[in-house]
Amino acid sequence: MRKAAEVSTRRFSSIILIVIIVVLALSLAALYQAYELFVLNDPNMGYYLLIGIIGLALSTYMLFQTRRQIRKFTLKSPPIVTTIICPECNFKNIRNFERGDYILKELGQCTKCKGKMMISAIYREVKEKVKEEKVFT
């Protein structure tokens, strides 16, 4: 089933490719015509120039559209930090998350006093990429 889908996709893409090539050729022809009319000082060269530029822009846009489909997908995991504190002397240690960590887990002795270390927090920090809606707060 998947194979059939792939084959039809490829056929669809080749149709698009032909269309792009034809549009590209025609717009180049139009641009050449515009140049010839420009040499003859014909005021109609403007129309050909317009058609040529629009066609050129359209075909390159379509070409990039099909290119954009082929990109790598990745599953990235954000950095998670574990905060370890000593409740006795407030000694604080922040490190990356390790398997087996959990909030309120008791760890070994504190390096500074004889208190018991404990994981107080595990979280990820998010750097907000999207601009927050400022007006409607």
Binding site: P78, A121, I122, Y123, R124, E125
Partner: peptide, 9 residues
Amino acid sequence: VSPMRKEIF
């Protein structure tokens, strides 16, 4: 469902 973010903590 993702690792707890700081704001929520």
